[in-house]
Simulated scan of single mutants.
Amino acid sequence: MVSGLGAQGSFVAMNNTVSQSVPHLHLHVVPRTKGDGLRGFFWPRTTYADDAERAAYGERIRSALG
């Protein structure tokens, strides 16, 4: 998140079973920057402008991992 998206850090959260219709484990890795609005586990929800923007973010993260 830091190198791929230019974030200052990241927030990592895991959830299993609670509030799930099908029990499973999942992990959130949320990019963080000062003043981003994260409050506890809740961060401001936004949407991508279109599929191309969403794909571009995915590619930035994949490139940083590769």
Results as ranks from 00 to 15, higher is better:
M1Q: 06
M1C: 11
M1R: 03
M1V: 08
M1H: 09
V2Q: 14
V2H: 07
V2K: 13
V2S: 08
S3R: 13
L5H: 02
G6C: 09
G6N: 13
G6S: 12
A7M: 08
A7N: 07
A7C: 07
A7I: 09
Q8E: 15
Q8R: 13
Q8K: 12
S10R: 11
S10K: 13
S10H: 14
S10P: 05
F11H: 09
F11N: 06
V12D: 00
V12Q: 02
A13T: 05
A13C: 06
A13G: 09
A13K: 05
A13W: 07
N15D: 08
N15T: 09
N15V: 02
N16W: 00
N16C: 07
N16Y: 00
T17A: 06
T17V: 10
V18H: 02
S19L: 02
S19R: 04
S19W: 01
Q20H: 10
Q20I: 07
Q20F: 06
Q20W: 02
Q20G: 09
S21H: 02
S21E: 08
P23S: 10
H24S: 08
H24T: 06
H24F: 08
L25R: 15
H26A: 04
L27R: 12
H28R: 00
H28W: 05
V29H: 05
V30W: 02
V30M: 06
P31E: 14
P31S: 12
R32E: 12
R32I: 07
R32G: 05
R32T: 10
T33S: 13
T33R: 15
T33N: 12
K34Q: 11
K34W: 01
K34R: 11
G35F: 02
D36C: 07
D36I: 07
D36S: 11
L38P: 12
L38F: 05
L38E: 03
L38N: 08
R39F: 00
R39V: 04
F41R: 04
F41H: 03
W43G: 05
W43E: 01
W43K: 01
P44R: 12
P44Y: 11
R45I: 14
R45D: 03
R45N: 11
T46C: 06
T46F: 10
T47P: 01
Y48L: 14
Y48H: 15
Y48N: 14
A49T: 06
A49F: 04
A49M: 04
D50F: 03
D50Q: 03
D50S: 08
D51S: 15
A52P: 02
A52Q: 12
A52N: 07
R54H: 11
A56R: 12
Y57H: 15
Y57N: 14
G58V: 07
G58E: 10
E59I: 00
E59Y: 01
R60L: 11
R60I: 04
I61W: 09
R62I: 00
R62F: 00
R62T: 01
S63F: 10
A64R: 12
A64Y: 11
A64T: 11
L65H: 00
G66I: 01
G66Y: 03
